[in-house]
Design a protein around this nucleic acid. Structure first.
Lengths: 192, 192
DNA sequence: CCCGTATGAGACATCAGCGTCTCAGCACGG
DNA sequence: CCGTGCTGAGACGCTGATGTCTCATACGGG
């Protein structure tokens, strides 16, 4: 039989191709379909058999990213304990996907109004709600809007992923640098 | 005489075209040469008379961005008074160029090793030195490296410019959101 | 008034990347 | 041993963008 349903083997193939595509596009967002194929160790024709075209590939990557992002969100149990610690857990959980997320965010900025994948708005809402709860509990300051904090978190994750990639930040410091800056800021405070 | 030297009129033309190109590419980084020309109110041929090609245009924009960035750096007198206030002045000064800077940073990430414009490294060094001085004076925490703080500043400026553009942050809050987050972080501290 | 000059519009060739297709090779199962 | 089916390689046509060129025109100075 051909690849109708989602037999395990088939899914594994797709998954693997998707992973390597993510890895490549993460640090070369303009990579060619041919490059993506070669990076996955397959031919361009086969790549097209898995993904109808570049758009389909990006959309699949988008779904993968959303899925991983959501998994990180679930895994970090943002509501348990101090909001600050939830944030730490989240950044730690999202680190492996940081490059992919960064790519997708950049990619999304190009699609002006062409209605973005609804998954993003759902995730945005969850993250913004987390910040809002932190504010209501008195753990976060209230003069920075949840929407901005959400964007800033994405931005810092992307910047962090890139800084690690070009060697300006040690990989082991990724999580620490992002979370500490986001939580405490750069000012040296007495309570540290 | 033709446009040999840099007669005033000629320079003004270029400048104006460059400005409008910056404004356009800032929120549509994939804009066509034709779109750039139309946005500047000139024909594509004339655009090519000013800038040999897309690369030349981008390079000119890069120089413009570097120049504005450096001007903002000079104007904000980072060393005077508290480091924190210097940072505030700088973000205020750089706000008009934020979109352009954001575009250029993204653009630069594509040129892998093709040796980036030396202007950037000079500016990077100045900013990093500022953070280092702040640390030495005891005003900034020392567990975040100057290199990371520099990248984070760029990242937040870019994120801020984008957030304003899509309406997630009010233009008047641009400066406040960036500086406050960068300086104090999201944690609600007693001393606020 | 007339000439020089820059300009805008458009035609043209070129090129890179995409999407489709064909074909031969290879593995795998019957 | 032989079909079936998937794969990689490659050819092909198409499209969009680029860079170059020509030409008619409008503007401005002498």
């Amino acid at each position: 039989m051909s690849h109708t349903g989602y037999t395990r083997l088939m899914t594994l193939d797709r998954e693997q191709v998707l992973r390597s595509a993510a890895a490549l596009l993460t640090h070369k967002s303009t990579a060619t379909m041919d490059e993506v194929a070669k990076a996955a160790g397959i031919g361009r024709a086969t790549l097209h058999r898995h993904f109808a075209g570049r758009d389909a590939l990006v959309k699949a990557l988008e779904n993968l990213g959303i899925q991983e992002f959501e998994a990180a969100l679930d895994a970090s149990a943002l509501d348990e304990g101090r909001a600050e610690d939830g944030l730490r857990r989240f950044v730690a959980a999202v680190e492996p996907s940081a490059g992919l997320l960064s790519f997708l965010v950049t990619e999304n900025q190009l699609f002006e109004g062409d209605q973005v994948n609804e998954g993003w708005s759902r995730l945005d809402a969850r993250v913004a709600a987390f910040f809002r709860r932190g504010q209501e509990r008195g753990e976060f300051r209230i003069d920075l809007t949840p929407a901005w904090l959400t964007e800033a978190l994405y931005g810092l994750i992307g910047t962090g992923a890139w800084a690690v990639q070009v060697g300006r930040v040690a990989p082991k410091d990724f999580q620490y640098m992002i979370v500490e800056l986001l939580i405490g800021g750069v000012r040296r405070s007495v309570e540290q």
